[in-house]
Amino acid sequence: MASSSSFLLVALLALASWQAMASDPSPLQDFCVADNSSHVLVNGFVCKDPKEVTAEDFFLAAKLDMPRDTKMSKVGSIVTLLNVMRIPSLNTLGISLARIDYAPLGENPPHTHPRATEILTVLEGTLYVGFVTSNPENKLFWKVLNKGDVFVFPQGLIHFQFNPNPYKPAVAIAGLSSQNPGAITIANAVFGSKPPISDDVLAKAFQVEKKTVDWLQAQFWADNHN
Results as ranks from 00 to 15, higher is better:
Ala189Asp: 03
Arg115Glu: 01
His113Arg: 12
Ala205Lys: 03
Phe153Tyr: 11
His111Ser: 10
Leu216Ile: 04
Pro109Asn: 03
Val144Trp: 08
Pro196Cys: 02
Lys139Asn: 03
Ser178Ala: 11
Lys139Leu: 04
Asn180Phe: 14
Glu137Asn: 15
Thr121Val: 13
Pro169Trp: 09
Ala170Ser: 15
Leu202His: 07
Pro196Tyr: 06
Gln207Thr: 06
Lys143Ile: 00
Gln155Cys: 13
Ser178Asn: 14
Leu157Ser: 01
Leu157Arg: 03
Asp199Asn: 15
Lys143Glu: 05
Ala189Arg: 04
Thr112Pro: 07
Pro114Val: 08
Ser198Tyr: 10
Pro154Tyr: 07
Lys147Leu: 10
Phe191Glu: 00
Glu209Cys: 04
Phe191Arg: 04
Pro136Ala: 04
Phe141Asp: 00
Gly130Ile: 02
Asn135Gly: 11
Lys139Tyr: 11
Ser177Tyr: 15
Trp142Gln: 01
Val208Asn: 04
Gly156Arg: 07
Ser178Pro: 06
Val171Met: 14
Glu124Gln: 09
Thr126Lys: 05
Gln161Asn: 12
Phe151Trp: 07
Gly125Ala: 00
Lys143Val: 01
Thr117Tyr: 10
Asn146Asp: 10
Leu145Val: 07
Thr121Asp: 07
Val171Asp: 09
Phe162Pro: 00
Thr112Met: 09
Gly125Phe: 07
Lys211Ser: 09
Asn163Leu: 07
Ile184Glu: 10
Ile197Asp: 03
Val152Ile: 15
Phe220Lys: 10
Gly148Lys: 13
Glu209Lys: 06
Asn135Cys: 09
Lys204Phe: 00
Thr212Phe: 07
Asp149Gln: 12
His113Glu: 02
Gly148Ser: 11
Phe206Leu: 01
Ser193Phe: 14
Val201Pro: 04
Ser177Glu: 12
His159Glu: 00
Pro154Asp: 07
Lys143Tyr: 05
Leu202Asn: 03
Gly175Gln: 15
Gln219Tyr: 05
Thr185Met: 05
Pro196Trp: 09
Asp214Gly: 13
Gly125Leu: 03
Phe153Trp: 09
Leu176Thr: 12
Asp200Ile: 02
Ser134Phe: 04
Val213Asp: 02
Trp221Arg: 02
Phe220Gln: 11
Gly156Ser: 12
Gln155Leu: 10
Lys194His: 15
Ala218Cys: 06
Gln179Pro: 14
Ser177Cys: 14
Ala222Cys: 00
Ile119Gly: 08
Phe141Pro: 01
Gly106Ala: 08
Pro196Asp: 00
Ile197Cys: 00
Leu145Glu: 02
Ala116Ile: 09
Asp200Trp: 09
Pro164Arg: 09
Phe162Glu: 00
Phe191Ile: 03
Pro136Gly: 05
Ile197Pro: 05
Asn146Leu: 07
Lys211Ile: 01
Ala189Ile: 02
Pro136Arg: 05
Ser193Tyr: 15
Lys210Ala: 06
Leu145Trp: 08
Phe160Glu: 03
Ala172Ile: 13
Phe131Gln: 00
Val122Cys: 09
Gly156Leu: 10
